[in-house]
Amino acid sequence: MARTIIYGGTGGIGRATAHALRARGHALHLVARDAGALDALAAELGETSVTAGDVTDPGLFARASAEAGEALSGLVYAVGTINLKPVGRLKPAEIEADFRINALGAFLAVQAAAPGLKAGAGEGTSGVVLFSTVAAAQGFAAHASVAMAKGAVEGLALSLAAELAPQVRVNVVAPSLTRTNLARSLTANETVANGIAAMHAVPRLGRPEDTGALAAFLVSDEAGWITGQVIGVDGGRSRLRTKG
């Protein structure tokens, strides 16, 4: 059975996506740094194989694609960074690191998986989901590094969607602030979290399941006519202002 690769599979959004895809009957191949966490999640999900490694290692992507199998039904790159600093405090090395993890990693993941994704498409399509952020479309202070990196992801996805059509569909999910371990520095303080939540038309922070459900849908055959899109899962933050 063709598998869907999920990079960052043990993270908050990656894990939620894995559960949503398994509920739809997808076999999975998870990629993450923590081998123990991978094995535990694979045992929990069933029909799941794993590759342990870090996305800053260029050799990881070919290895993960090979271990996932010759035919792939989808790819989800649920890897990201949150590096929020004023422009005067950002160092070039930090910007390069954000770009490497978010944009270059996404490119290398799709590049390595493209033959398998085309093989797995059969007479239909396979689905790729990359992740951006609401901050790529909205101007938020102290978000220069992550907004640049995720903006590159959106440009990459549009190019790939055109180049890999019709066998492979490529879409982007752009969440607002979501309660994950990665975002703990922003969500651990409930006063801060509630203040950010109130900025949304639906006044709460995101849950991993919100984003995972959409990612799973975009990989599935039900989204067979959706490609080249950037879709917000953001409580309306990117489009709506309910006050002032």
Rank of each mutant, 00 (worst) to 15 (best):
M1Q: 10
Y7F: 15
G12E: 07
G12A: 08
G14K: 11
G14T: 13
A16R: 07
A20L: 03
L21C: 03
H26Y: 11
H26Q: 11
L28D: 10
L30M: 09
V31Y: 04
A32M: 13
R33F: 12
E44Y: 10
L45M: 10
V50I: 15
T51Y: 13
V55I: 14
T56E: 12
Y77A: 02
Y77S: 02
V79W: 06
G80R: 08
L90F: 07
E94G: 00
E96S: 12
A97E: 13
R100W: 06
V110R: 01
V110N: 01
A113M: 08
K118I: 14
A119E: 14
G120A: 02
G120C: 04
S126M: 06
A136V: 07
F140E: 02
F140A: 01
F140T: 00
A142C: 13
H143I: 02
K150S: 00
V153Q: 05
E154M: 12
S159N: 13
A161C: 12
A162K: 11
V168H: 04
N171G: 03
P175D: 07
L177T: 03
N181W: 10
A183I: 08
T191E: 14
A193P: 12
N194V: 01
A201I: 13
R204E: 12
R204H: 11
R207Q: 14
A213D: 07
A215M: 06
A216W: 04
G228I: 09
I231Y: 07
R237I: 10
